[in-house]
Simulated scan of single mutants.
Amino acid sequence: MSEQPFLFGDGWIEVKDGNDTARALFDRHYSRYLYADGRKPKIFVGPGEKLVLLTTDAKALCVWRKFISADGQDGVNCAIFRNESDQRASDLMQSAMTVAWQRWPGERLYTYIDTYQVPPTIVRGNPVWGYCFRKAGWRFCGVSKTRKLIIMEAFAA
């Protein structure tokens, strides 16, 4: 991971799609697509409006993306959330949600969770996917049609 000497303070900072440190975190995310021909594009977020957030210690990444969803979801998508820090994931998510709502006031936030790729958190003996999202105020709202991903959503208070 490359060092970012300008990263100081607390919370999230906005970086550009293609930032080396952000991409290094994304490379360890379960949704990272590896091309068969070995190419590694510099940008990693995809089309649409985007907000790439990196914590000042460069140990967590959150990417918000507003685009036309193929399955009809409306709002701003949390496309990537990865926490390798000691901070509680739900606290990081709540602060990232605040930044997203500053950019897109009042918009519905939603995310997809792949239950085959993400291990559940066991809560009172039951498996719970997206536990940090739940703790941050998100709720289950359905399952995607194509890959059967869990869809969770959050609304501004």
Rank of each mutant, 00 (worst) to 15 (best):
V143Q: 13
S31W: 01
T56L: 12
T55W: 08
L34V: 02
D114K: 06
I113G: 11
T111E: 02
W129E: 08
L92D: 07
Q117E: 15
T115K: 14
I113S: 09
R147H: 12
G106Q: 09
D86P: 00
R103F: 03
M152N: 02
D37N: 08
N19L: 00
D20K: 07
K42N: 14
M93D: 02
I13Q: 14
N77W: 15
W64S: 05
Q87S: 13
E49Y: 10
P41Q: 00
K42A: 15
A79Y: 08
T115M: 15
A79C: 05
C78Q: 05
C62E: 02
G142D: 13
N126V: 04
R103S: 05
A96F: 05
R103V: 11
R124C: 11
Q94T: 12
A136P: 04
R65M: 10
Q117Y: 09
P119M: 07
F8H: 08
A136G: 03
C62Q: 03
D17I: 01
A136V: 06
R32G: 00
L25R: 00
R82E: 10
R108E: 11
D86Y: 04
F6T: 13
Y131C: 09
R65V: 03
F81T: 02
K148T: 04
T55Y: 03
F81G: 00
P127E: 15
I113H: 13
D27R: 13
